[in-house]
């Protein structure tokens, strides 16, 4: 009796264990199903390379190049801010401050990560957007630049947490060795620890990028949502995520527009899949050293 019960429970546990695989496959197939039927009607190249996103006009055009460029602009901008600040903060937290303060700062970073993206978006709309408008003397403050700044705050916690882990998992012998040879703490930090933790830091950056590309609400509220190819980061842009979120409500279920949004979802899914896969490779590398 006991044995039978054990057996059943262990089977249930096994099924739950594989459930993640099932969901990844399900997500992919649902996106693919709608996306593929859209590609058949519209063409992949016209979709990826098309310059015009006019989903609801009479001569509908579903070119997502402006959306891709929008996503890339915002992502690069956010990373340019978040990566240096994030990595430096991780160094500061893990190697410089005393343990008591370190725990407080780590908890603060964790709390930062919990702030909902609508709240970030709302605050950005109210404080940053008018500021950007007046400082740079722009027609509108809803730009890729404003989006980048707000998104940087959402990527920083990810980058800090994972880099901090990587830095702290550097064997202490490395540090002791360098210090024993007369190097200053900073020289040790920069030449030894940073180098040893590099794979983990790269993974942290990749996961930060993943977070920014996938971010939806804040981006939709701050970047202005103009579906055209921007010439500078001081112009409104529209990202892939914002397009899905903003337009799904108006589509006819099963229609061309509806399926085109799934196709965008498929593109996003593949991009983040790739990013996470590579990041995971780097994380694995960090653990082996």
């Amino acid at each position: 009796m006991r044995k039978v019960l054990d057996f059943i429970i262990e089977k249930i546990i096994f099924i739950c264990g594989t459930v993640s695989i099932i969901f990844v496959i399900l997500i992919f197939s649902f996106l693919f199903k709608e996306g593929f039927s859209f590609f058949k009607d519209f063409g992949v190249l016209k979709f990826i390379g098309g310059h015009f996103w006019y989903p609801s006009s009479d001569h509908a055009s579903f070119g997502i190049l402006p959306l891709i460029v929008g996503s890339v602009f915002v992502t690069i901008g956010a990373c340019a801010i978040a990566v240096p600040i994030g990595v430096m903060t991780a160094l500061f937290i893990s190697e410089i401050v005393p343990k008591g303060i370190r725990d407080i700062l780590k908890s603060l970073v964790e709390l930062m990560a919990a702030i909902p993206s609508v709240v970030i978006g709302f605050i950005g709309m109210i404080t940053l957007v008018p500021l950007v408008k007046s400082i740079f003397n722009l027609p509108t403050g809803l730009t890729a630049f404003s989006g980048s700044i707000m998104l940087a705050f959402m990527a920083i916690p990810t980058i800090v947490t994972i880099s901090e882990d990587a830095i702290r998992s550097v064997p202490w012998q490395y540090k002791q060795g360098a210090l024993a040879l007369g190097a200053t703490k900073w020289q040790t930090l920069r030449r030894i620890i940073l180098k040893a933790a590099m794979p983990g830091i790269i993974a942290a950056v990749m996961l930060g990028i993943g977070r920014v590309i996938g971010e939806t609400m804040a981006v939709m509220m701050i970047t202005g949502n103009a579906a055209h190819i921007p010439h500078s980061i001081f112009e409104p842009v529209r990202t892939m995520t914002a397009t899905i979120a903003a337009e799904m409500g108006e589509t006819v279920r099963g229609g061309m527009h509806y399926r085109s949004l799934f196709a965008i979802g498929l593109v996003l899914f593949l991009i983040t899949f790739l990013i996470n896969f590579v990041a995971d490779l780097f994380l694995g590398k960090n653990k082996n050293t």
């Binding site: 264990g17 594989t18 993640s20 695989i21 969901f23 990844v24 399900l26 997500i27 649902f30 996106l31 996961l207 993943g210 590309i213 996938g214 971010e215 939806t216 995520t241 899905i244 979120a245 799904m248 949004l261 799934f262 979802g265 996003l268 899914f269 983040t272 899949f273 990013i275 996470n276 896969f277 990041a279 995971d280």
Partner: peptide, 20 residues
Amino acid sequence: IIKLAIVNLAGVPSVVYGLF
């Protein structure tokens, strides 16, 4: 494969979950 699937589920954008 399970570990890879978990890593990737964690990275799927929230709006894509919405679509799904």
